[in-house]
Design a binder for these strands. Structure first.
Lengths: 329, 329
DNA sequence: GCTTGTGGTGGTAGCGCTCTCAGGTGTGCG
DNA sequence: CGCACACCTGAGAGCGCTACCACCACAAGC
């Protein structure tokens, strides 16, 4: 490790110091093609002496591969880019991409404007796209030139592999737990209507309710605590006999609990509450929240790796979600 | 908007279609130098017809500027890259960088190995660095070639502008609130010792305790809920008469409250608890958490913009932190 | 007339890297 | 010996873009 030169070393510098040609140095560094042990050794010591770091931009330019992975989030406004879930996806992606010399970008895909994807497809610096909050409209609009470089966190399609938590199973476990502990008048606070991936837990809820011969009680939400709070108030008004509320996210569940507390309803005494995600704080509150695990980091990591690798991924990869039974239900 | 061609359009294609030279097309698109209104119009329509998107890698290569902004996090292990705080910084940075065609990378800087920064300085694809969890050791090791392209979230130095929340003020407000509501035996759970930016709230605590003639009661923590939980247990053992615990983060505060509840101590009846950050859930729990606001997103955004702009930023930019008085204190 | 701009243009040299290709050395084999 | 077939090397052609420079037309000023 030498002192930092004013001008960073280039491959040319390395080759000169090692007494070989640029080609040979390139071959040694990239690990492609033949190189004698002698040349290999001279080049590697030269790299160390100069503190050489390859320039990904140049490499990308000549190889024709991108230097950026785009996390594209569909939503009504650009504000969707500010939510913790998106941040976590970006953070996990960045962690995976950095060693590969790839940067991460964050794009908003306005609902109803699937043409935005064309723009990404034509940007040669984009090596791949991770879709978040996928809509069917979006899946239908994937440009051919982008195929094989797109994955979806949430629902996918024949052309777009999907990575997601097995929230049908997780929701099922939680709902069966509610049923097993004697709850029969179970309401659910869902996610946004337009979001296909919030439908799977709803389907699980509907299926189980029908199977058990129980009435469906569904309220729309948006994953937020504030919406959970208002939805719970409405639930109490519409169904005074409700004895359990299942929320699509832990945030929502905390909002629900706050509303119930405001109304003097005991949790879990009068109404049991369960969430989804198992965020760290779920274990800390009073009552501690019953929920199902949601390995967002692992999902995002797998999605980013799939894009980076470029190998065709399985059409659907589901990550297990397990019941975490605590005090609230 | 045309159908996506298999081969994305290049500047050459645009120039040919517009009937001008590459130079002229480049000038129009980049908005530099002269161009007649006629040429300008022909080029812009050609760009639209072809759906041309410039290749940032090529642009970066020739301009000699980087295509990646690095969020560099110091810590004992690479696990620091997985915390929500870091994710939020990366997410906010990505939001700022994307329109500029810059990607975001996430690096771990192992404690005690300041040479890692040299690596970043020599990477020509790096346009700047945002330091997180800055240490003095790190600040002393900033390579000259990186100066003007580094900012720090947390403490800075003469060479590194810093962006941070005014946590001294925030901590002061919270502590004065505790004092004003009659608390006198106030303990504090801090952050990691090696982290300079966790020292400022501690200094505020010490200053106020000394000023009020009260004893200092400090316990080390690490921002986590788990550590807050164990620290609170220790606080009760060491100082049975404690009547308030101030935690360096909301997560920690929730851990503290959980421990107190386990011990049968009432909050805020017996012991008041306050945190720092004002995370969304702070308003939802029972009791709702008294805390001070912490605009992480705004801080990270400002830091990223400062790096991207490259203009010398103010040595220190502090974002205000305000008391949010709720039930827990 | 000639200079001296001023607005506009195209040619061309790279930025740093990879990759193909032609051309070396050796070895083994008929 | 000739030939094939390793292994190994360096020259050179770009990837797509910008920046520098030379150039041209035209107008204004001595």
């Amino acid at each position: 490790m030498t002192t930092a030169a004013h001008r960073p070393a280039t491959l040319e510098d390395v080759a000169r110091l090692a007494g070989v040609s640029r080609s040979t140095a390139s071959r040694v560094i990239a690990g492609t093609g033949f190189a004698s042990p002698y040349a290999r050794e001279r080049v590697t010591t030269a790299v160390e002496r100069l503190g050489y770091v390859p320039n990904p931009a140049a490499r990308a330019l000549v190889r024709g591969v991108g230097v950026r992975l785009v996390v594209a989030v569909a939503g009504a406004s650009a504000a969707v880019l500010d939510c913790p879930y998106v941040h976590q996806v970006v953070g996990s992606a960045a962690r995976v991409c950095t060693p590969a010399g790839v940067g991460v970008a964050l794009h908003w895909l306005p609902l109803g404007q699937p043409g935005e994807l064309d723009q990404l497809a034509r940007d040669r610096s984009v090596c791949g796209v991770v879709l978040v909050n996928t809509t069917n409209e979006l899946l239908d609009a994937i440009p051919r030139s982008l195929q094989g470089r797109v994955v979806s966190i949430g629902v996918g399609s024949s052309a777009v592999p999907s990575f997601d938590v097995d929230n049908a199973a997780g929701a099922g476990e939680v709902l069966r737990h509610l049923y097993a502990t004697g709850r029969r008048r179970i309401a659910m606070v869902t996610g946004p209507q337009w979001l296909p991936c919030s439908r799977r837990p709803v389907d699980a809820y509907r299926g189980l309710m029908r199977q058990a011969g129980l009435p469906e009680r569904i309220l729309p939400g948006d994953f937020s605590a504030a919406r959970g709070r208002s939805a719970a108030g409405e639930a109490l008004r519409r169904w005074p006999d409700v004895d359990a509320i299942y929320a699509i996210s832990d945030e929502t569940a905390f909002g629900v609990i706050a509303a119930l507390r405001d109304e003097g309803v005991r949790v879990p005494g009068d109404v049991a509450v369960a969430g989804f995600d198992d965020i760290p704080l779920a274990a800390m509150t009073a009552p501690a929240l019953t929920t199902a695990s949601h390995p967002v980091g692992r999902i995002a990591t797998a999605a980013a790796i799939a894009v980076l690798d470029g190998r065709p991924a399985a059409p659907v990869t589901l990550f297990p979600s397990a019941l975490v039974a605590r005090a609230s239900a």
